[in-house]
């Protein structure tokens, strides 16, 4: 809520409840961005410590999607599944800046385990056609992902079905006789299995997780872009730190050819190599151990692998991705 004459704020939408909120708050906190809830009746609004012109909007994950699509908020945290389900022209309205590593949801096609003859979408297409030919009715698919289902089924030529909208306990619909199969989210598959359902081999519609999303329809004044740049550089620094490791060793000879080999084999980047042999590389977390082995093979006596708090860089890939999609000022 800006006052006349005040610079318009950057609005960042955060899920208002549940695990998604906790995870989102923790994510921003890791990036050094502390979210403070506003006091009193306006506690659906909040602030970012130390950044007066950033406004936090606490909304449901579904509302965040519509607000992003409409351009009423600039940045938001929400699930990719909701984005793909709700926004028909998502590519034109929003940009997924970064997956956040929480809020995982796998949207899948699941059929009764008793259908031992059905393993693939092609089987389902065949069975759905036979079902309709035999009964004069279409097979019912219970789901809350109406659009994802239509798109996925159409791409695979499954047309003899009918969607039954289900807003809760979708996995129970076949047992309750309300549908023949479901399109639902699963994390471990345990709930589906408990309901005697199985996932089709090629029935994976979307592997979704919470994303940091930018609206392309929002007003992006120079001031708002600068606020986004600051926020995104902190997030990028934390993400870079979280996903990479600093690997250091003492190695007097480290020719350019070795640097190239380290890059090719371990995606390692040379940060620093001094004349006294101190060598520092940065590489993806999961490559740290193999890189250390390789450095020892090159003659290093010890290799230290260290986790980092932040890695700030002159380049800011998240912001560059956003700015590339915004109109030039």
């Amino acid at each position: 809520m800006s006052l006349p004459g005040q610079a318009p704020p950057l609005v960042l939408a955060i899920p208002s409840k549940g695990r998604l909120q906790e995870n989102a708050a923790a994510f921003f906190a890791r990036a050094g961005l502390d979210i403070a809830k506003g006091g009193g009746a306006r506690d659906y609004r909040g602030t970012l410590a130390g950044m007066d012109t950033v406004e936090i909007a606490f909304l449901s994950a579904a509302d965040i999607v519509t607000q992003l699509a409409a351009g009423h908020v600039h940045l938001g945290v929400t699930g990719e599944d909701l984005i793909r389900e709700t926004i028909a022209d998502a590519e034109a309205r929003i940009e997924l800046l970064a997956p956040l590593g929480f809020g995982h949801a796998h949207v899948v096609v699941a059929v009764p385990r008793a259908w031992i003859d059905v393993k693939t979408m092609a089987d389902l297409e065949d069975v759905a056609a036979a079902f309709r030919a035999r009964r004069g009715e279409r097979m019912r698919v219970a789901t809350k992902y109406v659009h994802l289902t239509r798109r996925f089924f159409a791409e695979r030529h499954v047309s003899d079905y009918r969607i039954v909208e289900s807003l809760g306990a979708t996995e129970g619909a076949p047992a309750a006789g309300k549908a023949e199969l479901v399109v639902d989210i699963t994390t471990t598959g345990a709930t589906l299995a408990a309901n005697a359902l199985k996932i089709l081999d090629d029935g994976s519609i979307l592997r979704s997780q919470a994303n940091l999303v930018a609206s392309l329809r929002a007003d992006w004044s120079p001031g708002q872009r600068e606020l986004a740049r600051i926020i995104l550089s902190r997030i990028a620094a934390e993400e870079e730190a979280r996903t990479t490791r600093e690997v250091s060793a003492l190695l007097s000879r480290f020719a350019d050819s070795l640097a190239a080999e380290a890059k090719a084999a371990f995606s390692a980047r040379l940060r620093f190599h001094s004349s006294d042999g101190r060598l520092t590389l940065n590489c993806p977390k999961e490559k740290a151990a193999p890189l250390a082995d390789w450095l020892i093979a090159q003659g290093a006596a010890h290799v230290c692998v260290a986790a980092q708090d932040y890695v700030f860089s002159a380049a800011n890939p998240l912001y560059e991705r956003l700015i590339a999609r915004l109109p030039k000022l």
Binding site: A114, I116, M139, R140, P174, E180, L181, A196
Partner: peptide
């Protein structure tokens, strides 16, 4: 045969298609 397969696997026939329909498709 389909009924036997289902019962060996401990799966209750369910979900709109009968064992007869599954057998027909096989």
């Amino acid at each position: 045969l389909v009924e036997d397969l289902l019962s060996i696997a401990g799966i209750a026939p369910a979900g709109g298609r009968t064992p007869g329909e599954i057998a027909d498709r096989f």
